[in-house]
Amino acid sequence: MIRPGSVSIVGAGPGDPELITVKALKAIHAADVILYDRLVNEELLSYAGSGSIRIYCGKAPGQHAMPQGTIQRRLIEYALEGKRVVRLKGGDPFVFGRGGEEVLALAARGIPYEVIPGITSAIGAAAASGVPLTHRGVAASFACVTGSRCPGESDGQVGPPIRWDLLAHAVDTLVIYMGVGQLKEIRAELLRHGKAGSTPVALIESGTTGRQRTFVSTLTEMHKLAAAVQLSNPALIIVGEAAAIREQLRQLQDQASAMLG
């Protein structure tokens, strides 16, 4: 019998290839097979061995290269062939990365696995754009939530609805993943549950990469700004007073430039 190989569920970080961990790079280099997602910077594949098998299994809104069930079967099949497998995901595997589903499938078959964490986009993109998720005297808590299960969505998602009534007031900073297509619905839900329309909002597109764009608006106006600048995925929505720090930084930088100039 062939001894089972192993699977490393690896976080590739938020987009900038230099933000991946050393441990993750070692796993990529040692892999026989790499199954990688859409938001993984393909520069990271250059660290793989020349004989490695590389399989794209990315998911875009409404367009999946490979269903989740098939991905899990592939992980199991390659591991049972004795191969060292890397499942390479954008951000962190356990933050909206479905890593939990994959390790449960592996554990059920008795396949050795490890999880190598990565910097999730909420942390990476916020820092790269000058938006602190917590800030003394302004924000002492934050929460991350997916925006893809708003009322009226019929994409087959399962699970309880998002409790916008609680999120509107339970945390100081709200980070919303996968919400670009539901900006109007998110706005309506937060306003309906008492979030002030003047609350600052940061919209961060392609955070930490050379394509990064950051815009600051208010909850009332964020959907209009997003339409005007043609905001596209991948993008984060950060709602809370801490988002205004970005503008304070920009003003201070402009003042410093003017003095030096």
Rank of each mutant, 00 (worst) to 15 (best):
39 L>S: 00
6 S>K: 15
62 G>V: 08
20 I>K: 06
4 P>M: 07
10 V>T: 08
51 G>T: 00
26 K>D: 12
43 E>M: 03
49 G>N: 07
13 G>R: 00
5 G>A: 13
17 P>D: 09
43 E>I: 03
55 I>T: 10
34 I>A: 00
62 G>P: 10
21 T>V: 03
60 A>K: 13
23 K>S: 01
29 H>C: 07
60 A>C: 05
35 L>I: 15
21 T>D: 07
25 L>Y: 02
8 S>Q: 06
56 Y>N: 08
2 I>S: 12
2 I>T: 15
33 V>G: 08
53 I>D: 12
30 A>H: 09
22 V>T: 06
13 G>C: 04
44 L>M: 09
31 A>W: 10
56 Y>C: 10
11 G>C: 06
28 I>M: 10
12 A>W: 06
38 R>K: 13
29 H>G: 07
63 Q>I: 12
36 Y>K: 04
42 E>W: 12
33 V>Y: 06
49 G>S: 13
61 P>T: 05
61 P>H: 09
43 E>V: 04
5 G>H: 06
39 L>E: 01
3 R>C: 03
35 L>C: 09
42 E>L: 12
65 A>E: 14
54 R>V: 03
10 V>E: 01
61 P>M: 10
53 I>C: 13
24 A>I: 08
42 E>R: 15
15 G>H: 05
28 I>T: 03
16 D>P: 02
52 S>R: 10
34 I>T: 09
45 L>N: 08
26 K>H: 08
11 G>V: 04
2 I>C: 07
65 A>M: 09
9 I>S: 11
25 L>R: 04
30 A>G: 10
18 E>A: 11
41 N>D: 13
35 L>D: 01
50 S>E: 14
8 S>P: 00
59 K>E: 10
25 L>H: 00
31 A>H: 04
50 S>Y: 08
17 P>V: 11
3 R>W: 05
45 L>Y: 12
2 I>G: 02
35 L>E: 11
18 E>Q: 13
21 T>S: 11
46 S>M: 11
29 H>D: 11
42 E>A: 08
46 S>K: 14
35 L>G: 06
52 S>L: 09
53 I>S: 11
31 A>F: 06
46 S>D: 11
35 L>A: 11
17 P>M: 11
57 C>A: 15
37 D>L: 03
63 Q>G: 10
46 S>R: 15
45 L>A: 08
60 A>I: 07
14 P>H: 04
35 L>W: 08
29 H>Y: 04
16 D>K: 00
13 G>P: 00
62 G>I: 14
33 V>S: 08
52 S>P: 03
44 L>F: 10
38 R>D: 12
8 S>N: 06
20 I>R: 02
11 G>W: 09
54 R>H: 10
52 S>M: 05
41 N>P: 02
13 G>S: 01
14 P>L: 01
21 T>P: 00
22 V>D: 03
57 C>Y: 03
49 G>V: 04
55 I>L: 09
50 S>L: 13
17 P>E: 09
48 A>R: 04
40 V>G: 05
31 A>N: 07
32 D>L: 03
